[in-house]
Amino acid sequence: MIIGRHHGGGVIAVTFVTALLLTIVPLPEWARYLRPDWVGLVLIYWCLAVPDRVGVGTGWVMGLLVDLLTGSLLGQHAMALTIVAYLTLRLHLRVRLFPVWQQALTVLVLLILHQLLSLWVSRFIGRPGPPLYYWAPSLAGMFIWPFIYIALRSLRRGFRVS
């Protein structure tokens, strides 16, 4: 993976590990239903920023880890995040030029897609449908995207990740 012109793979790994930790960190009951999809957000950012390094494969591995951490069906989030990564790669040239609020809307669509795919899987194995606030994490993710974007961009510039 590490070729001469690539730089700062450690930073990418650290952000992903942080996202995984945030996925299972205990929250108060009311906030549990608002927890944004940290791994999805970080994955989308790195797919936009360094599409030649982070892509479908990374999405699959991260999804598998999310499955292991959250006790969902093995492959449920892996499939969803793979598709999210693929779409982000297809769109990255366009989305990169958007202003941040427009990016946030795109991110909302991608996050909803992630939730929809994993909802399909859980409905398929016979779990009951969730209430309407099941979609709240996607909205939370949209609102948090500008901050993630700024934070990760400064990280990327600071450590010259390319």
Binding site: I24, P26, R32, Y33, L69, T70, G71
Partner: peptide, 12 residues
């Protein structure tokens, strides 16, 4: 003390 999927009642 880890939180899992809020729609599944699971504990570690």
């Amino acid at each position: 003390s880890v939180n899992l999927d809020p729609y599944k009642h699971q504990v570690v």
